[in-house]
Design a protein around this nucleic acid. Sequence first.
DNA 1: TATTGTTATACTCTATAACTATA
DNA 2: TATAGTTATAGAGTATAACAATA
Lengths: 150, 150
Amino acid sequence: MNDVNPLPLTTSVVFRLGTLGSVVTARFTTALAELELKPKHVGLMVALDSGAPPSQLELARIMAVAPSLVVSLADHLERIGAVDRVRDPADRRRQVLALTDTGRELLADCTALAHRLDEELTASLTGPEREALRRTLGLLGAEAGLPTSD
Amino acid sequence: MNDVNPLPLTTSVVFRLGTLGSVVTARFTTALAELELKPKHVGLMVALDSGAPPSQLELARIMAVAPSLVVSLADHLERIGAVDRVRDPADRRRQVLALTDTGRELLADCTALAHRLDEELTASLTGPEREALRRTLGLLGAEAGLPTSD
DNA sequence: TATTGTTATACTCTATAACTATA
DNA sequence: TATAGTTATAGAGTATAACAATA
């Protein structure tokens, strides 16, 4: 009905990125269920994996979520043995979080799972198209302050 | 800490698309507030704009949301004068929704807004990079059943 | 009896505010 | 008094289930 408009809303990067991101996250969420994890748990493990063991409040700032949410995410990860929570002896108010060996294995499982979903998602792309997509998303993500590894 | 891993989670398309999609949707949501709209209202208007006036139940199937959600989205759009709701004379159970002139103007505003955000978001990309991104996202979105216009 | 739309209710996610322990 | 973490509470968003009108 809107073919007359030279630039419909559905052609915008904002629309396509938002809707496709939502679909892809839904798939990832479903696949993560077998590991007893939600995407935010994975986000917390990614943050822990990429630097010095931070306090929960620092994590909240890094992840741009409320401190109370870090508490419940850490509660769950501790319960399944993925993180250690140790009081900082130098300041006993601080809880320092660190991935356990189990946590690192779990993160590796999430990583394998994401790359398996990647193959399904991008099966119709050529190799160069897939790499261009990965690279461009990484660039824009880095500009937006998201974790990136290259 | 995970630099030894040749393929970290953060390099996957799934991770990058999910996180960046979430950031971009948050920006779009903020910008839409001045039009008294949420992204799902825009989704409903997009669906109405791209075909024959459908019933609310058909809309719910197209948008993959619960019928009760279509009711409240349509309530709001009707309240601000963006859609007409008329009982189908041939089957008085059906409410047929259609964009009004106001609704079409509103959708045009949303479209302009999305393209303005596109410029900000992709300012660091070259023209060909931006078009490749748009095209690839459109392809993958179409495969996932999302609305596309090219 | 089946279907469309609506209303009532509940669940998930996440934030804000109140509180505890430590500094 | 200020800060880290926790707990209590509340709000947004959306689904499921019960219901009303029409077929």
